[in-house]
Write a protein that binds this DNA or RNA. Structure first.
Lengths: 212, 212
DNA sequence: TTCAAATACCGGATTTTTCCGGTGTTTATT
DNA sequence: AATAAACACCGGAAAAATCCGGTATTTGAA
């Protein structure tokens, strides 16, 4: 019996191509394809037989990688989820692993290695590629394991601060005193561990707290 | 006779999958695959019969999309180049079209539409997808058509400025006076049309002058 | 050889940002 | 009823960034 695979990726061309490729592997078949997390969950609900492994991209519209992984872990605990992403930054990897992924594969993996990885995940429950194994330990040592929690006002301020505006301009846009703005700035500097507005803006982008 | 395709993309899994897909199209065959621009050029030089169309990703290590397109336009004028990217921001599209691409396709295109696009490029020399046609005119109206040309020192400074460092720290890293640094800052503010360091950093990222 | 562009630098003023240590209200939770 | 967290705000000072108008050398192209 073939190993059943599900895929969620918003790049349609990649999704269909990859599906083709996997189908060409001897022991695998693709049972569900989706362009985002929500579509995946809907299609899953309609299936009688669930996939063994679901490949999930980190960045997707409507419902992103981490959210999708969490949902699957909750509703289909028997299904193994594997992150498949081109991003290899700490935050992407961490957010997926934290959500409950069994492996983190990069899109520039070679097809043969990819097949091997899928087989290993099916058999052992995990896969130790260069990236996930080596970096994972380092990541666990680091402080940024705790998720950064921002309040609503902080989020609004942060988005506005990622711009060419002065704090004075931001204050008037938010109908607040400059001193209040300064409070949010202070608080965000601490949470993001930076010393300057530029650093804050860049960290915010890296951590996907704002989008460019 | 089949239409010969070349592909350059640094995501190996995508590259091989796409190659598979194209091979499955009735009228197409893949004659060259490469993980970056330089590899593509090397492999091209070794061929007797050149591809009709080469698909090129925007972001690649070693030699990126625009540079590769320029080289091909120069050395193989009979070969049509097509950008194939997931990025649909103005700067990516512009830089590829300016380099000489005949079309700009997004990776979230549907395989059938993709096949149609390739056929159209082969027959008419171009393809009008939603993105390229609609946005292209708008792009041409805009000011940012002029490429932003930075000097070497400006580039080095800009990369360092996209950080949590102070100018003083940057100055010492570059073994320059703070006043010299201030000169580069001034010049970059003009070229990027911003009023603050944060604005500068964000513009730099948007315009792909620095990578996060 | 002359000209433009890139490089490196300075004084001095102004604005913005950053930092410090505070106050007080509202709102939800225990 | 007590506590915590989020929200909104202040004075004052120090540091950093921004702006202005300069100079001088080098280097390659016209």
């Amino acid at each position: 019996m073939k190993i059943r695979i599900g895929i969620a990726d918003d790049q349609q061309l990649f999704l269909r191509s990859l599906s083709n490729l996997i189908t060409s592997f001897k022991d695998f078949e693709v049972v569900v394809e989706a362009l985002n997390g929500l579509e995946l969950l809907k299609k899953l609900a309609a299936l009688n037989v669930y996939p063994d492994i679901i490949l999930i991209d980190v960045q997707m519209p409507v419902m992103d990688g981490p959210a999708t992984v969490k949902e699957i872990a909750l509703n289909y605990p028997a299904v193994t989820t594997v992150a498949l992403s081109m991003k290899e930054d700490d935050y992407s990897i961490l957010s997926m692993l934290r959500a409950g992924c069994s492996a983190y594969l990069l899109k520039d993996i070679h097809p043969q290695e990819f097949e091997r990885a899928l087989t290993e995940v099916k058999n052992t429950g995990y896969y130790n590629g260069d990236v996930s194994s080596v970096n994972y330990r380092r990541l666990l040592r680091r402080q940024d394991i705790e998720e950064i929690k921002l309040t609503e006002r902080e989020k609004t301020f942060l988005k506005l601060a990622c711009s060419d505006f002065t704090y004075k301009e931001i204050a008037s846009k938010m109908f607040l005193s400059e001193k209040t703005i300064d409070g949010y700035r202070e608080s965000l500097f601490q949470k993001l561990n930076v010393k300057s507005r530029t650093g804050m803006a860049l960290e915010a982008i890296k951590k996907n707290l704002v989008t460019l």
